[in-house]
């Protein structure tokens, strides 16, 4: 038993959001690359990207940050510390995301634990987001670590 999390709260692990599906627009891919100031023609220039093995423009790896889940699965823990920190992300990339793709996003709680850190007791929640295209190919997984402290 921890300060905030009991065995009972482990039931939140595995809870999934309702899926949501997005149309990926070419302009959105380009705007994302421009915001990062990544001038790689693969992410910006259809004519040049066609000459590559991808056969056309693709999205930057972290473009899917724009494709938010319908909701973040809730963890209903009493007295959860209010301050929230994005601890970072782990990514896996399997297939490119292209203009015109329809990407379905599902989020699930992958892990929930508490640790002692510099800032006292922290509740660490790993949310896994899966991004699947219209051909049922899993394109990207993002595992995001959120820290309440």
């Amino acid at each position: 038993m921890g300060k905030y999390i009991s065995d009972e709260h482990k039931k939140f692990i595995g809870i999934e959001s309702e899926p949501i599906t997005y149309d990926v627009e070419r302009g959105a891919i380009r705007l994302f690359a421009q915001a990062i100031e990544d001038r790689n023609p693969l992410f910006n220039d259809e004519q040049k990207a066609r000459k590559t093995r991808f056969g056309g423009m693709i999205a930057t790896p972290t473009f899917v940050r724009l494709l938010m889940p319908r909701e973040m699965p809730r963890v209903d823990i009493p007295n959860l510390p209010k301050r929230l920190l994005d601890g970072g992300s782990e990514w896996e990339f399997f297939h490119p995301i292209r203009p015109g793709d329809r990407i379905t996003v599902v989020a699930r709680i992958a892990d929930l634990r508490e640790t002692e850190g510099r800032m006292g007791t922290m509740v660490v929640r790993m949310t896994e987001m899966r991004y699947t295209n219209q051909f049922d190919e899993l394109c990207t997984i993002q595992r995001m670590t959120l820290i309440n402290y």
């Binding site: 790689n40 790896p61 970072g88 992300s89 990339f93």
Partner: peptide, 23 residues
Amino acid sequence: NAFLAQLMTDFAGDEGWLRKLSV
């Protein structure tokens, strides 16, 4: 995170593929 992804896609080039990234 996106800057670090760019570091790796620049390194991988058109023929390479960034498979995993953790930040």
